[in-house]
Amino acid sequence: MRLTPSWLFATPSDSSESEDGSDDTDAETVSGVTIYRDPSTDLSTSGSAAEFVPDSNTELLSVLDEMETPVTVDEVADELIHPARPSVETWASVHERLYQYRLPELDTTGHVEFDAEQGLVDRRTVQTDAVTRRESSGFELQRMLRLAGLAVLVTSGLAIALVGVALLV
């Protein structure tokens, strides 16, 4: 996992030198940045992340449906924040909220497959499984209807045969 916003490494040009020849790098254009945070800081309750992470699972799933899955948690965070460029802390808060709470919840309910170890979210596999289940349940329904129809025919045939035998006796 990248654990940084995609725009953090974006540079407007290949050179980091300004017009006056000085080295003009800043936190948003420097690659290889390591972000440290105090583990006691609870990013899950940060108010700034709330404006980017959808409140409902339906909204979050629709965002995932628009993405080509499997995707990383980083990419989901980037998608939710795009086109805004909030602070790295806000991006980290969105990432942690997804990673710690929302994606495991969606995995538990069977809406996505979330591999926390690799940081991957797959919606396509779950959707394919649901379609397969629907198709197989449709097939099962057709099979049951055919068997019911056959049972009706056999029962009707037996009833007619019994009436015929009763008339002959």
Rank of each mutant, 00 (worst) to 15 (best):
V112S: 02
L153G: 14
V30S: 07
R37A: 04
R97L: 01
A159M: 13
Y101F: 09
E135G: 07
V63W: 01
D74I: 00
S56K: 11
R133V: 12
A77S: 10
L120D: 06
A130L: 10
T25F: 06
T128W: 09
E140C: 06
A92D: 03
V33Q: 05
L167I: 12
E51V: 01
V30I: 13
T125G: 07
T69W: 02
T128S: 12
A27G: 08
T41W: 01
T58A: 14
Q142M: 14
R134E: 10
P86S: 05
L150G: 15
T90G: 01
D74E: 10
A116M: 06
A84W: 12
V152A: 13
V30G: 02
T72F: 01
P83F: 00
R133D: 11
P83L: 01
V73W: 02
D74M: 03
V30P: 02
L120M: 11
T132H: 13
T155A: 15
E113T: 14
Y101N: 07
D122S: 09
V88I: 09
Q142A: 13
S56R: 15
E66H: 11
L167F: 11
A161K: 10
V30Y: 04
L145Q: 14
A84N: 13
V163D: 13
E68H: 05
L64H: 04
T29W: 03
D38N: 15
E28T: 03
A166G: 05
I81Q: 01
R146D: 14
T155D: 11
T128G: 07
T58R: 12
A116N: 05
L64G: 02
L120I: 05
R97D: 00
L43E: 00
M67T: 05
V71S: 09
T25I: 14
Q142G: 12
S31Q: 11
G164M: 08
R143D: 10
D65P: 03
P104G: 13
T90H: 00
V152F: 15
G47Y: 00
S156T: 15
V121F: 02
V33G: 06
N57I: 05
A92K: 08
S31E: 10
E28A: 07
N57E: 03
T108G: 14
M144V: 15
H82C: 12
G119T: 01
V53W: 00
